[in-house]
Amino acid sequence: MSIRKRIEEARALQAAGYHEAALILASVAVAGASRLTYPRTDIPGDGQAFKTYLDRRILETTTHGPITPGGAFLVLSYKGKEQSIAAILYHEYRCNLVHEAELPSGVSIGGEDRGLSFTVADDILVLTEGWIRLLIDVVINDPALRDTFDDIRRRHPDDLTYVGGIAEEHYANEFVDEFYSSAGRLSIIKTFVATVGAEGLAQLDDSEIQELWDEEVLKDPGRFGLSESCLTGLSFPGPQVQGPDVEGRAFLYRAGKSGSARISDAGIKMLRSVSNHYR
């Protein structure tokens, strides 16, 4: 399918540092995917189909929760207008690159920050390359394209089979209590385990897990079912932990003030627990 080819090309271009070209190809894939969900009989305009689809899929991808129709993950005020991030990506980036072959002065994408960050000030609009990865991620993990991307799509917790000795609900409650976590964090960790493979993960020692995280996961979190919001959530323990007790309880920790998110000792134990209870 051509959507698959566009995604493969976008990933290759991003890996090579061609961010604008990667954004164009990722946008083409989003446009194609949007028409699978919203045919012209439902939404005649291509731009509206693109924005409606992207707003919904970004919410589904980043929040792992129920979606309010018409909602948006992020709204920015730019040039006197309030626009969703989907509208920004469409009008300010996609349309300018496709129709003008360049971005306007003050508008750019890339930089050293690989997360989901942005800068908006007067006529300045800068998005980090994490937004390109997110565009790619929302298409790869679209349920309507499950067969197209089955070999690289984000795995779902339901892809795992529970093999623990106690009831699964009981295990989940014990996990939350033991690791000062939450049901949402457990779901994110299960998604990661399902993507890597529980059996393979169980065979890695602690240093190999950390190496996998540093060398592969942080370079492309979306491939492992992790959005930037997931990483942020895993950097904090559950809501039952307050004050100084937060230290060392979370799945991730930041190495230095602006360092990358590394797996903590507690995080290693969480992965061991999940990989021992699921296949």
Rank of each mutant, 00 (worst) to 15 (best):
A86D: 05
G165Y: 00
T148L: 09
A255N: 13
L201P: 07
V193C: 08
S227W: 00
G164W: 06
T148V: 15
R153C: 08
Y90M: 05
E60N: 11
S258V: 06
A15H: 12
I7L: 05
I85M: 11
L271P: 03
L103D: 02
W213H: 15
A72E: 06
R40E: 15
L125A: 06
D142T: 08
L145Q: 08
L234Q: 07
A33Y: 05
V241N: 06
L271N: 08
N173W: 01
Y78D: 04
V28H: 11
V120W: 01
T61S: 14
G110W: 06
M1G: 12
F73K: 00
F175R: 09
L125N: 01
D245Q: 14
K257V: 09
A12F: 05
L135K: 00
F224Q: 04
E168Y: 08
L160D: 11
Q242H: 10
A21E: 14
A21M: 13
L59Y: 04
A167M: 03
D122Q: 14
T68I: 08
D55S: 09
A15P: 01
L116T: 07
I3W: 04
R154W: 00
V28T: 13
A22L: 05
N141K: 05
Y180M: 02
T195C: 09
S275H: 01
S34V: 06
Y93W: 00
D245N: 13
E216C: 08
L252P: 09
I124Y: 07
P39L: 11
H170L: 10
A72M: 00
D150F: 11
E129A: 06
V246W: 05
V107H: 05
H19F: 15
V176D: 03
F118Y: 15
V163K: 15
V193G: 07
V163L: 10
Q14I: 11
T41R: 14
D42E: 15
H99I: 01
L103C: 07
L25E: 13
I188D: 04
Y38I: 07
C95D: 03
K79V: 07
E215R: 09
S105R: 05
G165T: 11
L127T: 05
G197K: 06
V196K: 09
A121N: 12
G256L: 07
I124T: 14
K51L: 00
L226T: 03
G110R: 04
S27R: 06
G233E: 07
L23Y: 09
V217E: 07
